[in-house]
């Protein structure tokens, strides 16, 4: 039994079942697809959140709304709500874009290192003999 090979397999399995699991799932997508998917999710979730916030704001000021409803300019109120929605959506889409890019970059780097080690394991580069030690790799 090549103990170094077994040790490497253990490390790779731990990566797959631990922190690397999420990274591997992310890297199944192309970067553009992953970021687009996250932004679409954000769009729908932020829309739901906006209406929930609106409902909470109405609940907290319901007496005021009932007293002043007939004096309100609904067009102005509608414009304010629309602008608020656009600002909230733009903010969250921007945050989602940045975080999705950062997450994908980190996942890609992590999976790249894993793939290199997996390929070396498959090619038996470092584990040709039980006495093989980590040393300089050719071409690097």
């Amino acid at each position: 039994m090549n103990l170094m090979r077994v040790s490497e397999m253990v490390h790779l399995t731990r990566y797959e079942e631990g922190k690397g699991g999420a990274a591997l799932k992310i890297c199944k997508y192309y970067k553009g697809d992953y970021v687009a998917l996250q932004m679409i999710k954000s769009f729908f979730l932020t829309t739901i959140a906006f209406f929930l916030i609106l409902a909470l704001a109405a609940a907290g000021n319901i007496n005021w709304f009932l007293e002043h409803f007939d004096q309100m300019n609904l067009a102005v109120v509608g414009a304010i709500l629309l602008i608020s929605y656009i600002v909230l959506m733009a903010t969250y889409l921007a945050v989602t874009f940045v975080t999705a890019n950062i997450r994908y970059g980190k996942a890609r780097r992590s999976v790249r290192a894993y793939e290199i080690r997996l390929k070396e394991l498959g090619d038996n580069i470092r584990y040709a003999s039980p006495d093989a030690a980590y040393g300089k790799r050719s071409g690097r």
């Binding site: 909470l56 704001a57 609940a59 907290g60 000021n61 319901i62 007496n63 009932l66």
Partner: peptide
Amino acid sequence: ADRLQLVV
């Protein structure tokens, strides 16, 4: 109305 205002 009063209850919701209290909480929110």
